[in-house]
Design a protein around this nucleic acid. Structure first.
Lengths: 213, 213, 213, 213
DNA sequence: GAATAAGCGAGACGGTACGTCCCGTCTTAGC
DNA sequence: GCTAAGACGGGACGTACCGTCTCGCTTATTC
């Protein structure tokens, strides 16, 4: 990711709420962020050229430069802004351990088998050495909430006696998440939803081997 | 002033055995590959400009283009060529399960705590959507041998009765490897050699929990 | 003539005569100079955009920047290079004063009635406050030689007794030249070749009023 | 000078006598015209950006665009408005031919040696090919009155028998004016007031050579 | 040992994207 | 309805690389 830095004059927002001049177009804002994230997914951070972003967003280049001074800041904002869907309600109410764990596994499988998700993680990891703030933004906005939900679910299962008492639930989730990453990037395996579901169920079975039914 | 042509003229090596002309400089070959891999680690694939490579290798651009036609091919060759150190002899002879596992964990911790390794994996994952061949080259040259070694060690431990019989050794290694990736890229934890060693020992303890002493 | 200045890296020519690299295209050189002068005539100095020059010369923008660092230097070179035609041989051999003077007047009328000439002088004068070097280049390359020729002719006529002895021939030419400029720019008169010829003959008749036949 | 044309919404003045809204600021009017003429003198017509004008006049761009739609119209108005000083009263009463002519010469020398005058003429001539209306406005407002005054003076001198009867007084003034232009723009001579005065006296002496004392 | 043929350094060539500046238009708030 | 402020689309600027090409020189092999 080649180096290119210059001075810039982008103002982060507008100073006062209702100043005199023409207000910034929020439609342009949204279009730019969307275009930037799409480009990031398609081509990586170096592919997020301001020119390309502007063209996709159907906006003049100056309109982009007026708001942001670097490609990274656009992408970071775009990632932070797109809220992760809270469709994991399923997790909240599962009667048995097996059902609970399967629900977690299936939900995870559904998400990680999305090409968009896979590309996002790959691009973010690739950008980590130069721009860790992108990954940080993603984790804060998407990963941490999901993780927290899953952790609560497991914790609850443990409290209800569905797991052995000394289980390290945090570590178990680390391992499950890591297994997904291993599968996606290091192992040339099947990354379809069905394949990921089978793999994840196997992982959880191994991890929770001796838990009581 | 002339037309555009994107054909490539790079010849992978020299056609005949001993042609009449001047032979290619093998020193230039080595310098180019080294420069390309270094740039890949520092800036990612898009930062591997042929011009930059040539400058670092202290070679004319022509000399690079004569050999390779794309950045990816140089980097792939460079990755494939640099042999992974075979310093894992320690694994071959460990008397007890605990010692064996600790040796595996420590060896893994030592490798993955190298900044160069971390950057390499990050860059490779980032390049996966566009150029999976880079990761493939790395896995073939560095990962698979180490993995095979570790798998044999665990297998041997299992055969010697140090593990329960039905242990899914492959999956255990998947999980351990995945844990490393999780730790490196998703969790803002301590990635020093000491920190990784502690984490990995904890992982293996959890994974092999009920193994007989 | 809006302000715009930056640093530049143009090398005036090539250092050595036969250096290693590819030599510069002399065809591009010529095309660029021609395009620049044409644009200067059409739109003035501020209209000599590097982009326009490159497009007209059918050359990449970089090819222009490689040679020159400012619009003025291109135009100056282009003006200096285009040699003024030496078609004034007529002046050299005229038998009588009246014929001599008429020949000078007619030659001058022919030149100054060319639209290209009129524009050139207008543009040069307009550029004088900011870039007097352009006018200087033009005078050196085109004006001075013609002026010298005319001066010699008058001088010769004077020596042959066709003019009164104390005539200030230099001043007479100043006046004739100035009359042309007055006519072209300050007086809304007829600037066709025929009109200019008539006007110039009238000027010379007035200036040389009392000369002997 | 580069092309730029768009639709225009400027209303030359105010339509009705006393509309309901706020009346236009005449101070802004004056400041704008002054700024525009100054910029024209400093940088030429292309340097008269509406933005620059507004900044100099300490006025918003809107205020300029509401009044005029093009740079040329502002400059033309500004030139036409600034009245030429009528300080040539001296010319009206000179007893002898020599004194009369010297007075004309000196008055002319004083004016044409002003840097502002020189720049004005140079800029106007440079703008002639594209915008002859500027020169026309200048001639009408400044040149013609002075010229008329000088012509009357000479005419009067002729009528009083101070000049030979058949003198072409118009042409003589053409020649004198032309001599000034020649001196200013084509000849690298001394354009100070003193230098111009000397040169002009020499010109008139030559032109009126055989006039009676 | 000369001829030959390829490698090599250097640099011009056509191009693309960059980030900046200015332009002329528009859209708001305030007076 | 004028004014100030400022966002908007657009275009040119001068720079930095890119991948290709064309030179002059060097270095081996082959005749």
């Amino acid at each position: 990711m080649s180096t290119r830095t210059r001075s810039s004059r982008a103002t982060p927002e507008r100073g006062r709420r209702n100043g005199p001049g023409r207000p910034r177009s929020s439609a342009a804002d949204a279009a730019i962020l969307r275009a930037a994230v799409d480009l990031f997914l398609e081509r990586g951070l170096d592919g997020v050229g301001i020119e390309q972003v502007a063209e996709r967003a159907e906006v003049a280049r100056t309109t982009v430069y007026r708001r942001w001074s670097s490609r990274e800041s656009i992408v970071a904002k775009g990632i932070a802004q797109t809220r992760g869907g809270a469709d994991e309600e399923i997790l909240r109410s599962s009667p048995s351990l097996r059902a609970t764990v399967n629900a977690v596994a299936d939900s995870l499988a559904r998400i990680v088998s999305l090409p968009r998700y896979q590309r996002m993680i790959a691009r973010l990891i690739g950008s980590t050495p130069d721009h860790p703030e992108l990954m940080a933004a993603y984790l804060r906005a998407h990963f941490v909430p999901r993780r927290k939900l899953a952790a609560e679910t497991l914790e609850r299962a443990c409290a209800e006696g569905l797991l052995r008492e000394d289980a390290d639930t945090e570590l178990l989730l680390d391992l499950a998440t890591g297994a997904v990453m291993y599968r996606l990037f290091l192992c040339p395996g099947d990354s379809s939803q069905k394949g990921m579901r089978a793999y994840l169920r196997r992982v959880f079975r191994e991890l929770l081997r001796e838990a009581r039914p």
